[in-house]
Amino acid sequence: MTTTPTPALPPVQVFESGDAALRVVASSPDREANWAAVHGLAEWLDAGGPDGVHGAVPTYDSLLVEFDPGVTSARQVRAFVLLGLRQLEFTGAPARTPREFSVPVVYGGEYGPDLERVAEQQQLSVEEIIGLHTAKSYVIRCLGAPAGSPMMDGPDFPLAVPRLKDPRLSVPTGAVSVAGRQAVIAPAAAPGGWCVIGQTPLTVLDAEAEPLVPYVPGDTLRFHRIQPEEFATYAGRKLEAAR
C-alpha cells in the first residue's frame, strides 16, 4: 500500500440515519474527490473500525456506516468517522493498482431486449450503441444491489437513458444494462427497471468465494462483443482480472 500526495478532502457532512446507521456525504464539486473520500473512509473503517461497527457501504458521494446500537452509538460512531477523516487528510487515501476486467457480451436479440429501444431513444443505430458501449474502460464506482453489482459511470451516449416504465420482475444473471448515466452487470437474477442491452455468459457471482464478486471499487472493466453462437463457449467461466 502506498500513499498519494494529500489532496484536500472535500467538505463532509454526517447525517443521522436511524439508531443503527449514519450517512456520510462528501459535497465538493469534484466528483472524483468525493468518491475517493468516501471509499477511503470505508476502507479505513473496514480495516480497523471500533467495536460494534458492522461495516460501511460507500457509493458515489456517500457512505452508509452501520453499527450495533447495543454496543456503540450514533454519537460515538460519528466521532470515529470524524477521526477517520482527519487521518485520511493526513495520510491520503490508500492507493491500490486497479485491476482490469474484460467482459464478453452478446448484444441485442433475446440477450439484450432493450437494445433497439435504447438506440431509438438515443437516435443512433444499434451498431453505434454497441460501439459506444464497447469503446471505453469503465471505473467500477461501487458495489450495488443486487448482490455486489458493479456500478459504473455509463457509456458516452448523447442522452441519459430513461428507466423502464414497467420494471421487469426478473432480469437474468449476466444481464448488461444501462440507465441514466450509469452502466451495470447483474451478478444474480433480480427485478430491475434498467434497459438490458446484452448479456455476458461469464459467471460474476461465486457464492463459494469470499468476497463473492472478483472486483472492488476502483477496478476497471471493458466490454467486448461476441456472437450469440459463442455464448456457450464462455458459459460457466468465471469473470477474472485480465491484469
Partner: peptide
C-alpha cells in the same frame, strides 16, 4: 433532482 445510488439503512 436525480439522486445518486447510496446505501440505505434497514428501516428506511
Amino acid at each position: 433532482t436525480e439522486v445518486l445510488s447510496r446505501g440505505v439503512p434497514v428501516g428506511a
